[in-house]
Write a protein that binds this DNA or RNA. Structure first.
Length: 489
RNA sequence: CGGGGUGUAGCGCAGAUGGUAGCGCGCCACGUUCGGGACGUGGAGGCCGUGGGUUCGAGUCCCGCCACCCCGACCA
């Protein structure tokens, strides 16, 4: 009874924290704003990594690794970029400690000639490097990704959703022309969207950011936006078309086929451990985590129910064929015959951890040739023939994956509201929240005013957004399309 | 950086008016249990966040500091 989760409707933030901590995904650390990702949480992250990594490789990208430290001077080369990141940098100024009467102190004689910035993102060091790698159109495109940690000194942090240090992948590509760079940006956006929907069971809206919300240094920022159960939006991934901004800042040019020198076109794109937070919030309930089968480190757990050890021995034996079948079918299964906990304890524990399917095998089943099957998402129980268990589990895992997505999609659809005037706009945001589709006059001023008054920001302008004549919900000026407003993480 | 809150056993908490620390869970041992977080008995475990002050005496009162959580401003 020690691992009770705060009900979601009572305190959403606490509910989220409880799940992250009690399901063993992560822990607070001794360092402010930094978290420890625990083995179970990291196993999920590793699944995410391996799927995405496969998709990047399949589209021609290679992994590489660039330094954690970036000389301060690099950082200031691109004006908008500095502006965007200056306020949240960790800076290394010294390289040595010494003992003094005050204990261990920074050795003031060991000051760096030039301060190093702990990377908040790697565009600058990477473009400085690319300059040496690119001379001709034959060197392009250059398609590189790195898995790394980055640091952004956040005022306020939340496990997985916003921590000072986080893990991510950042892709940085160089192209010989604008069209190809934009196509790359969109290709990655599709990879992110497909991953979110097919693997995480998380419906997302693809769109572009407004100037206000754009990545510092980008010409255009594309994003996938998801909607969490509390009606707040979460940016789950971004893909940026950087134009020639970084090429110009770092003087990266190539000779085209005509022998004329041109600046390179660039993209960058990333998803982070924030996806873990999205995954938690998208499907979980008051019993704990709910994981989509495709990302669950353990998809099926089998719990033996017994009184005497002779019974356990029989169950151990009776379960072997099924275990082999499941493993043979590539299903990640765990048979938990650990005697240190009772079945009831295990049921609760595996529910908390979000394992998609739980099976129970006891004396009654041995007599009847059956096995109990419980799905985590609906907590529905049924007894099936042991001989049919493999097929049943296979289809059940598929069903759960599909139904998690459908449920999330239904929620998103139900939480998307078209509004036509500002009173309604406020009312929806203060009430059910969610995505609000409203006309916007396209100006930065209006966007900022709306943000000040309602806390809602423009999450994105959806791709292939239908054109529609209307009036801006705030200024009343003419507008050609609705954009998505929401309060966001 | 503002507002609020919390620091006492691994976790969650209780300790009126100051008198030398307790409960639940967890942990260890043994026994009974085991189809939804079992029970009994016996144990182990504390610099009461930290520095000063008041006092014969401080978990408790006073002043400072620190850390963390929640809510805002900033942000993936």
């Amino acid at each position: 009874m020690s691992k009770v989760i705060t009900p979601r409707e009572k305190d959403y933030s606490q509910w989220y924290n409880d799940i992250v901590i009690k399901a063993g995904l992560a822990d607070y650390s001794a360092v402010r704003g930094c978290m420890v990702i625990k083995p179970y949480g990291f196993a999920i992250w590793e699944k995410i990594q391996s799927i995405l990594d496969g998709k990047f490789k399949a589209t021609g990208h290679s992994n590489a690794y660039f330094p954690l430290f970036i000389p301060k001077s690099f950082f200031s080369r691109e004006a908008a970029h500095v502006e965007g990141f200056a306020k949240e940098c960790a800076i290394v100024t010294h390289y040595r400690l010494k003992n003094s009467d005050k204990g261990l102190v920074v050795d003031e004689d060991a000051r760096l000639e030039e301060e190093l910035i702990v990377r908040p993102t790697s565009e600058t060091i990477i473009w400085n490097t690319y300059k040496g790698w690119i001379q001709s159109y034959r060197d392009l495109p250059l398609l590189i990704n790195q898995w790394a940690n980055v640091v952004r000194w956040e005022m306020r942090t939340r496990l997985f959703l916003r921590t000072s240090e986080f893990l991510w992948q950042e892709g940085h590509t160089a192209h010989s022309n604008k069209e190809e760079a934009i196509a790359e940006t969109l290709k990655i956006l599709d990879i992110y969207a497909d991953f979110a929907q097919e693997w995480m069971g998380m419906p997302v809206i693809k769109g572009t950011k407004t100037e206000n919300e754009r990545f510092a240094g980008a010409v255009e920022t594309y994003c996938i936006e998801a909607l969490m159960q509390d009606g707040k939006a979460l940016q789950a991934g971004t893909s940026h078309f950087l134009g020639q901004n970084f090429a110009k800042a770092f003087d990266v040019t190539f000779l085209n086929k005509e022998g004329v020198s041109e600046y390179v076109w660039a993209t960058s794109w990333g998803v982070s451990t924030r996806l873990m937070g999205a995954l938690v919030m998208q499907h979980s309930d008051n019993e704990g985590l709910v994981l989509p089968p495709l990302l669950a480190p353990i998809q099926v757990v089998i719990v033996p129910i017994y009184r005497e050890f002779e019974q356990l021995a029989k169950i151990n034996e009776a379960i072997q064929p099924l275990l082999k079948e499941l493993e043979g079918a590539g299903i990640r299964v765990k048979y938990d015959n650990d005697d240190k906990h009772t079945p009831g304890w295990k049921f609760a524990e595996y529910e908390l951890k979000g394992i998609p399917v739980r099976m129970g095998l006891g004396p009654r089943d041995l007599e009847n040739g059956t096995i109990e099957v419980v799905r985590r998402d609906t907590r529905q129980k049924e007894n099936i023939k042991l001989s049919q268990a493999l097929e049943h589990v296979k289809s059940l895992l598929d069903q759960i994956q599909t139904s998690l997505y459908e449920k999330a999609l239904a929620f998103q659809t139900g939480s998307t509201t078209r509004v036509n005037d500002f009173a309604e706009f406020r009312q929806v945001l203060d009430g059910k929240g969610g995505f609000v589709l409203a006309h916007w006059d396209g100006t930065r001023e209006t966007e900022e005013k709306i943000k000040e008054e309602t806390k809602a920001t423009i999450r994105c302008i959806p791709l292939n957004n239908p054109k529609e004549e209307g009036k801006c919900v705030y200024s009343g000026k003419p507008s050609q399309q609705r954009v998505i407003f929401a309060k966001a993480y």
